[in-house]
Write a protein that binds this DNA or RNA. Structure first.
Lengths: 154, 154
DNA sequence: CTTGAACCTATAGTTACTGTAGCTCTTATG
DNA sequence: CATAAGAGCTACAGTAACTATAGGTTCAAG
């Protein structure tokens, strides 16, 4: 194992695009790998591992900066867990809120798919639900979201 | 009701930024409102309603294009529900996947917060979990996510 | 009637990619 | 060994969905 891998191979193995791998290198999310004599990047399994880590974290809504922090923590496993704990706590409330919203939406989506067979839009509850303030747990005033750009969920 | 509202008022009522309201107007998500003699926008309650709708949908991961579709459906409530149904179905699988991932992460976050009191990073399971392929339901190969840019959750 | 907050337009910056152009390198096949 | 397809390279532009800033105007309170 740890065989030499091209960028295409790592990207495929990690489930991301080739450009994304290069982009992550550019912004320092992954280390720059060695190159062949012809200037092509060569990776080993550890790159797949790290990219998979990043992808999972992105899919779960961590911004790249938080993932960067997590990576730097995992690179120094003997330091205190407090920082990781802080990141986790900051994420937990957000995760819970998202789960609540998504579960509410799922119910409405299912309801709608069930009911709307041949019906008219005025009977659809999705639109109503999305307009409805009662689903709003958070106060309208503090809507400036703390979590930057969650990714597309894979 | 339907009192005249400034852009600041609607933004506050709908839970978004003033710039965001202007941006939505610019890209046609909301209609351009009338102006005062001094060129300032004047809204009524319907703008708050629509903006709230948009915010909810965005928080739940709908891309603006899908919301645009939903809005155009709700503007024509007598047409067939089939299109809304299609949008809902397309969204449902995605919603379910996100819920699964988030619940898995929540467990790990809680576990970590519980365990890591004064511990070391090497005992933290978040990092391990995020690196772990077993959490991956989707095949690594089809990672190009179908849902564009979910927003920051409020 | 002044002052300061809120408004206006226009433009640039942000995050996290994704796509394109125009080239070079590698590899399979004749 | 030649060659052509396919993968890689750099550099830069574009996308989504905002967010911030600059520099000016309008409105409402004192």
């Amino acid at each position: 194992m740890s065989a030499d891998l091209t960028i295409g191979r790592v990207a495929e193995a990690a489930g991301c695009k080739v450009q994304t791998v290069r982009y992550y290198e550019q912004i320092g999310m992954i280390p720059a790998p060695p190159r062949t004599s012809g200037n092509q990047r060569i990776y080993d399994e550890s790159a797949v591992h790290r990219l998979t880590f990043i992808r999972h974290a992105r899919e779960l809504g961590f911004p790249l900066q938080a993932i960067r922090d997590l990576i730097s923590l995992s690179d120094h496993p003997d330091q205190s867990c407090a920082a990781a704990d802080g990141i986790a706590k900051a994420q937990l409330g957000e995760v819970n809120r998202r789960i609540q919203s998504l579960i509410a939406l799922r119910g409405e989506l299912e309801h709608m798919i069930e009911q709307c067979k041949g019906g008219k839009v005025k009977d659809c509850r999705v639109i109503e639900v999305l307009s409805d303030h009662s689903l709003c747990e958070t106060d309208a005033h503090d809507a400036a979201a703390p979590m930057a750009h969650p990714p597309s969920a894979g």
